[in-house]
Design a protein around this nucleic acid. Sequence first.
DNA 1: TAGTTTTAAGTTTTT
DNA 2: CTTAAAACTA
Length: 756
Amino acid sequence: MQDNLPPYLEILNPEQREAVLHSGKNLLILAGAGSGKTRVITTKIAYLIREQGLDPRSIMAVTFTNKAAREMAARARLIDGRAGDAMMRTFHSFGAWFLRRHAVLAGLNSNFVIYDEDDTVSLLGTIDEESPRAVLRTTAALISRAKDYFLSPDDPELDLIDYRPEFRKTYALYEERLKKIGNMDFGDLIKKPVEILRSNPDLARRFRERFKVIMVDEYQDSNIAQFKLLAELSGPETYLCVVGDDDQSIYRFRGAEVRNILEFPERFPGTDIIRLERNYRSFEPILNLASSVVDHNRGRLGKTLRAERGRGKLPELAFLPDQDEEAAHCADLIQGKSTGSVRSVYSDWAILYRTNAQSLGFETALLKRGIPYKVVGSLKFYEREEIKDALALLALMVNPLDEVAFRRIINKPARGIGGTTQDKILESAYANPPVEGGLLAAARNCSLSAKAAAGIEIFASFMDKAKKLISPEEQKTKNIEPGSSSKKTGKITKWSAKNPIRADEGLSVCVASLIQDSGLAEYHSTHDEINGLQRLGNLQELVNAASLYPASEEGLAEFLEHIELDRSIEENKDTGSDFVTLITLHNTKGLEFKRVIMTGLEQGIFPREDKEGDDLEEERRLFYVGATRAMDELYLCSCAFRRMFGRTSIMTPSRFLYELDTLSIRIIGKAPIGFAGKTGLKQPALIRAAKISSDGRWKQGDRLFHDDQGYGAVMDISETDDGPIVKVCFDNGQTRRFLSLYQSGNFTKIKEDEWG
DNA sequence: TAGTTTTAAGTTTTT
DNA sequence: CTTAAAACTA
C-alpha cells in the first residue's frame, strides 16, 4: 500500500489502482459491466501525465463511438487539464486524421470525402447497372466486411467473405473507381493507414516514437483491420493497454473479432491481465439475472461480477397482450401507476428495444400521456433526401471529382441533364486525364445538347459563387452576399416563402447560398406538398450546424468530416432536461440508467430470427449489455401479439426468458407454462385470441393466446350457424370452448361459449 | 426524359 | 403499414 496517494488515486479500489499504476508490460484489463473501466482509463491518462511526467501528446486513447471519445476526454481533463492534449479519438476519426496528413504517400487524395454505405451502393450502381438495388446493397456490405477483415480484392482469403469470382471482380472495380474519384469509405479509414504504415517504415517509426502509450476502450469490439492498425502503431517500446469485456461483444455482425481480446496475451507476449469484477452499478438480482442468461454461452473468458451495492428490488417480467399494452405498461411504470409509488424523475428511465422500428409505438404512447422523451441515435436526419442532397453539393465542392455527389445533384432540380447525359460526361472525364476543376470542367468541355450545356452553366455558376464565399480573398468583404442581409437572425426553424433559408455566421453563409441558389430549397418545398416545410426546416438545421465552422475550405472539409463520422445529432425538440430515453440495445453500450425497461422479449424479435450458434450467443451478450445498464430497477416485457408489416402475429416468449434465473425475477401477467416465478398483479380480464395460421380459418393444432388463460392450442372445431366453435386446451391444463366472433386479418376476437 | 402509378419488399444492430 | 424501386405514360 502506497502512502500519501493523491485523492484521485485514493478513491480507486485495489484492482483499479493496480491497473492505473501498472507499467512496463502490456496490459489487458478485463472489466465487467459497471466496474469503473472508464474511470480507470481516464485516471490512467491523468496519472501518466501528472505522476509519470509523460507528454500528453505521446498518449493515444481510442474508442469506438464519438460519445465515448467525448466522455473520455471530458473526464480525463477533469483530473488534469493537460489530458486534453492527448489524442483521444474514435478509430475512424484517427484514421481520417492520419489520412488527411499522409494519404499522398499512397498516391491518394487528401481532400477526400468519406463515403457511407449508401454512397458505396450508388457507386456500385454505376459499375454494375444490371443488378437491382438489393443485390448492390449486399455487395456493399460484403465489401465493407472484407475491409473489416483487411482483405483486398486479390487476397486469397477473400473467398471466406464470398467465394464468387464476380464479387472479387466487382470489389476490384469498386476500388479502382474509388481511387480515381479520390474518396474513402469507412473501411478505408482503417485499412489504408495500415497499408501506408507498412510501406513507409520511416513514417511508422515516427509514429512509434510519438505514441509511447496506446489505450483502447471496448477492445472486444475491435475488428481485424483495427488490430492490424494497433500492431503497426505499437513497437517493442510501446505500452499497450486494452480494456474490454468479452461478454459485451455485440458487433460481430460488423466484423468485430472477439478473438482479438481472447487472444490478446498471445498476440502481444508479456501481457499482464487485471480483472475488474466489482460492480458498482446494479443491485444484485439485476446482475444475477443478466449473468444467468449469458452463462448459457460457451467460449467465455469467464468472470464473476460481485454486486457491491447488495440486494435490491427484484426485476419484473411482464407478459402483455400486445405492443400497445406494452407501451402502456411502460408509461404506467414511468408514471408510477402500477406500483403506486411516487412518480420518479423521467430521466431515470430508459426504454430499450432491439430494432429502431420498435421506437414508434413507445413514442406515440409517451406523447399521448405527455411524458417527455428523447430517441437516441435515430440516424434519420442525415439519411433524409434533402440533407443528402445538400451534403452532395458540399462534397462536390471539397472533391470536384466526387462522381456520386455529382450524379446525385447535377439534375436536381431538373436541368435537362438526365442519366444518358451524365454517363456521357463521366465517360469523357474518365477517358481524359483528370481535368483541373473536376467533373464540372469536364462537363463544360464535353459536347452536349444546348439544353444540357445551359444546365451545366447554371450549375457551375452558383458553385463558383459559393466557392467565392469560402475563398480567402473574399473573407474581408463578405458583407456582400444576399443571404446575410442584416443583423443576427437567430435560429430559424420554420420556413415560408418570405422567410427563406437564412444564415449569418461562418460557413453557414456558404451552405445557405448553395442550398438557396441551387434551387434545392425550392425543389424540396414544392415537390413535397405535405412535408415541404419540414424539409426546409431540416435544411435550415443543417445550415445552423454549419455556422459553427469557419467560412474556409478547411472549415468546409471539417464540417463534412464531422457529419460523416458522427451522425448522432441533438434532436432539437423542445424537450427540457428531464426526459425518458428511447434507445436500441446496441446504443446503450457504456450508458447507465436508474430504471431500465427491456422490451420485445419475443422469439424473432429478441433474439432475432431463430439465431443459432455464434449469432445466438451474440444476442445473449446483447441481453447482458441491456440488463446491466440498470442501476436500481429492471423491467422486462414480452408480448403475446405483435403487429409487424401491418399484420398481427402471435409471438412466442424469448428463449432468454426460459434461460434466466427465475429466483431473480417476479412475473406479472399470464406466463406461459414453464415459468415458476411468483405471480404479481392481476391483469384486467379481456377475452381475446389470435391464430397463428393466416388463411382465416381455424385448424386443429393452431396455437393461440387468451388473456385469461394464457397460451393454448386448438383441439377441435365444430361449425354452427353462428360460426365455428373451437375447443381449446390451454397450457395450464384448462379446456374451454369458444365462439368465434369476428375477424380482421389473422387476428380473431372470440367470445367464450356459453356451454364452455 | 420527367413525372406518375403500380408493385414489391422489408426490421437488425453502426463507425 | 411504410418505403423504395421498377414500370409505365405523356
